[in-house]
């Protein structure tokens, strides 16, 4: 049976992992390759590396990092951050990335999604959406790391992006991110049950029960989290055992 995926996310700045919530209080958390390899050994199903480097050196350092990750890590990984063109993606795939995630650049120029899908296949294009529920009760798309509001509804953009060729949706609820109060049930469920592609839920996972809920109640195909794994509040082996004991289909075979 196809299993639900647990995906640790590593934020990268200048080639180092940083820890922090909502881009504040960033602390150095070591070598992303070492941390990623540890997660892979502990049973992570995939990894996401999100580059938040702001300098113009970014492209070169990221490619070099991706090459090092490919040399060490034996599970699929996605790379995101600042991708705006087919060339960017070609460069990352040449260094061994399996998928890329695109966010603001795809919203500003939706043709990018189709270009990437045509060139590399939908399976390699993850569309990341940052969304926020506002007082009118609607979920809107936000850009630029959640700093720029748009007037577009999350469901609209998700559907359009899938039509254009996005192979997965990485959905982050800004209302829930960093709260550890659980994933966003409403919007995750709406997308996961209506879109023909997998939905990765992100933001709010704080306890093992939250992961159980996001898979059962919200029907997410995968769940992503960062700080609870980095700060070792939840261990991946313990989380997977907890879920397996509750009949969630999960890959739980660290010993072959």
């Amino acid at each position: 049976m196809l299993t639900k995926r647990i995906i640790p996310c590593l934020d990268i700045r200048d080639g180092r992992t940083v820890k922090g919530t909502n881009f504040v209080n960033l602390r150095d958390a070591g070598d992303p390759v070492e941390l990623g390899a540890t997660y892979a050994q502990n049973g992570a199903d995939e990894l996401v590396f999100l580059d938040i480097t702001a300098t113009h050196e970014r492209r070169k350092t990221l490619a070099e990092l991706v090459r090092r990750i490919s040399g060490e890590i034996n599970i699929p990984f996605t790379v995101g951050g600042g991708i705006t063109s087919v060339d960017d993606v070609y460069n990352l795939l040449q260094h061994g990335a399996d998928k890329v995630s695109v966010n603001s650049a795809a919203f500003k120029r939706p043709e990018l999604v189709g270009e990437l899908a045509n060139e590399f296949g939908s399976q390699c294009v993850v569309l990341a959406i940052d969304t926020k529920k506002e007082e009118d009760g609607n979920w809107y798309v936000y850009l630029n790391g959640g700093r720029l509001a748009t007037t577009t509804l999350c469901t609209e953009w998700a559907n359009k992006a899938v039509d254009l060729g996005a192979g997965e949706i990485l959905l982050t609820s800004m209302n829930h991110d960093g709260t550890k109060q659980g994933f966003a049930h409403e919007i995750t469920s709406e997308l996961a049950t209506t879109l023909p592609v997998p939905v990765i839920a992100s933001g709010g996972g704080g306890t093992m029960e939250h992961f159980y809920d996001v898979f059962t109640k919200s029907h997410a195909d995968a769940a992503l989290a960062a700080s609870i794994f980095h700060f070792r509040e939840i261990g991946i082996p313990e989380l997977k055992t907890y879920l397996a004991e509750r009949w969630i289909p999960i890959r739980n075979d660290l010993i072959i």
Binding site: M1, L2, T3, K4, R5, D45, S122, Q123, G167, E168, T193, L195, P196, V197, P198, H219, D221, A222, R251, D253, I256
Partner: peptide, 25 residues
């Protein structure tokens, strides 16, 4: 509705035959 296409993720292999799967459960 839960069977999305493409299949993406980890699934099991069974009824294993041949030396390709030697020592695998």
């Amino acid at each position: 509705a839960s069977e999305k296409i493409p299949q993406i993720g980890w699934n099991t292999i069974y009824n294993l035959k041949s030396d390709l799967f030697e020592d695998l459960r």
